[in-house]
């Protein structure tokens, strides 16, 4: 599957200055970062869906629809286990844990620890659902932002955008080249899998780790091919004047228009809006108790929050 899926189009998103596009990607990541509450994540999500329709990037979203669904679902389920706060709505019995006892032979202090002998259950709280859905949405929106960006930005624009944002040309070019290489490697990997299958190799044997190990007969040829291809590319690049002492020019003129400035300002507002959601506590999870506006960084806030609330793991497995 080609990773780079640029879709030709004439939308505003296509025509906006490349530097604005790269900045937009940054702002979307920034906005998602500050907000946890699914409701507060909604505006950005809806904005992106509208953009997907308007730009014609929809086919790429449609292609990834299952991936989006699985991403949200698995993340939500995972957080049901790890985020245990609030009052349980219901409990789901998972399995019966046999009774075990471990004796620690410490002479006079010898004692026995017993555990198990009960059903392990997961208690689902309203907060854990909200938090889980929020986390799922966050990941989905990060993915959506990337898909939107890649669907409307040419490789060349990526390089130009980065260089206008003061990223060195070579670095910007390397990033955009990586996308092209990835597509080439994807093709050769498919052929290699076929070749090894025909030699009787079964990729689907054993557990997850065994399966990963079983990809060595694919990984080695892909890697060796990658080295060879990269070498060929490097030679072809040099032969086209790459690495010349002069500063490269750009064929396409990207004049900064009023609409670009407007878009830039809009993005700053969008970023500021999401920071405000965090700052006022509206973007946080939980009953609408406004968080005290504090200058403590987000991470620190989260951590102090956790330590203040009930311990996470101990309470997660309740005795029936």
């Amino acid at each position: 599957m080609p990773i780079y899926r640029y879709i030709e189009g004439q939308s505003f998103f296509h025509r906006v200055h490349p530097a604005v596009k790269v900045f937009a990607l940054f702002i979307m990541f920034w906005s998602v970062y500050w907000v946890d509450n699914p409701l507060a994540l909604m505006p950005l999500g809806i904005l992106m869906l509208i953009a997907a329709r308007l730009t014609g990037a929809w086919p790429n979203f449609y292609r990834l629809r299952w991936f989006f669904a699985i991403l949200v679902a698995t993340t939500t389920i995972m957080w049901l286990f790890f985020y245990q706060r609030g009052t349980p709505l219901f409990t789901i019995p998972l399995f019966y844990l046999d009774e075990h006892s471990i004796t620690m032979p410490l002479g006079r202090h010898t004692h026995t620890i017993s555990f198990g002998g009960h059903t392990v259950a997961l208690s689902v709280t309203g907060l854990s659902i909200i938090f889980g859905v929020g986390r799922g949405l966050k990941l989905a929106e990060l993915l959506a932002a990337s898909v939107l960006f890649l669907s409307t930005t040419k490789v060349e624009e990526f390089t130009v955008g980065l260089s206008r944002l003061r990223v060195p040309y070579r670095f910007g070019f390397a990033i955009s080249l990586a996308f092209r290489l990835a597509a080439l490697f994807g093709d050769s990997a498919a052929t290699i899998v076929d070749a090894q299958r025909l030699r009787g190799y079964n990729f689907n044997e054993g557990g997850p780790f065994e399966r990963m190990r079983r990809y060595v007969p694919v990984a080695v040829p892909v890697f060796m091919g990658a080295l060879r291809k990269a070498n060929n590319m490097a030679m072809a690049l040099e032969a086209r004047g790459f690495g010349n002492r002069v500063e490269p020019t750009t064929f396409i003129d990207y004049p900064v228009r009023a609409s670009d400035r407007l878009a830039f300002a809009g993005l700053i507002l969008l970023g500021a809006f999401h920071f405000m959601l965090y700052y006022t506590g509206l973007g946080a999870i939980g009953p609408a108790t406004h968080r005290p506006a504090s200058k403590v960084p987000a991470k620190a806030v989260a951590r102090s929050d956790e330590s203040a609330s009930a311990p996470i793991y101990q309470s997660s497995f309740r005795l029936p």
Binding site: V155, A236, G241, N244, T249, F251, I252
Partner: peptide
């Protein structure tokens, strides 16, 4: 220089850009 591996000699998303690529590298005017 033109090499055997034609896949490894193309770096752009359209043909016109591809032709421009080498000229960009030597800093030609638009």
């Amino acid at each position: 220089m033109v090499f055997q591996d034609f896949e490894a000699q193309l770096f752009s998303t359209n043909v016109a850009h591809e032709v421009a690529f080498a000229m960009e590298q030597i800093g030609m005017e638009r």
